[in-house]
Simulated scan of single mutants.
Amino acid sequence: MPGQSDIDPVVPRASVANVANLLTGLRLVLVPVFLAALFVGDGHETFWRTVAFAIFAVAVITDHFDGALARAYGMVTEFGKLLDPIADKLLIGSALIGLSMLGDLPWWITIVIMAREIGVTLLRFAVLRHGVIPASRGGKLKTLVQAVAIGLFILPIAVWPPIWLTLATGLMWLAVLLTVLTGFDYVLSAVRDSRTRPAT
């Protein structure tokens, strides 16, 4: 009979209702607020575009803090790992579609990025019963570059020096490239996992 010291202690699971998940929820709430500010007037008013940028920036910052808090304080949950990328995609997607509707961003860029994001989200749901696919380092870099590029397009660039538009365009091209490459990487990872997963 094993002694008390041989018995593994019960490690409690992190509660779904924690600060990290609340920050993720806040990001979801900020999406319609951001869109409202983006489309005030004709959608090109300098003040409201700056407000929209500020809201977008706050939402992006919560993405950094919710992940950092979850890892540092043991608040990582399966729910959070699934909801976090969904919140990211809603924020990024709403910004891309909004900018394309306003004529500030070509629709093909929005379509390429959204096709990848929706595809990866569907892939996550498809393999959910076998576990959640965590965000890769490449995926995190892609999200960061997307956020910076989109943020520059949200700002009223028309009243700024032309260099800002050049910088924003260059970053957006990089974001598209990373989007496509990381999309293929997710698919390949899912295929590899399915081949190595034991049959049930």
Rank of each mutant, 00 (worst) to 15 (best):
M101Y: 13
L30G: 03
L91K: 03
E45H: 11
A115D: 01
I111M: 10
G119W: 05
V191W: 13
A190C: 11
V120L: 07
V33E: 04
L22N: 11
G138Y: 00
G98I: 09
L102R: 05
L181I: 15
V11H: 13
V159G: 05
T77M: 02
I118V: 15
T166H: 07
Q4T: 15
F79T: 10
L35Q: 09
V159L: 05
L22Y: 13
I150C: 07
K140P: 00
V159I: 09
A52K: 02
F79L: 12
W160C: 06
V127Q: 08
K142P: 02
V176W: 07
I97D: 08
P198T: 00
L90Y: 09
R116V: 04
L181H: 11
F39E: 07
P106D: 13
M1N: 14
I109Q: 10
D8F: 14
R13K: 14
V180N: 06
T62Y: 01
R49K: 07
S136F: 03
S189N: 14
P198S: 04
L178C: 04
V127N: 09
T182R: 00
G131W: 11
P9H: 12
G151F: 02
I150D: 04
A54F: 09
A36E: 15
A158D: 15
P134E: 10
I86S: 06
M1S: 15
S15N: 14
L26K: 05
F53K: 02
Q4F: 15
G139S: 07
S194E: 13
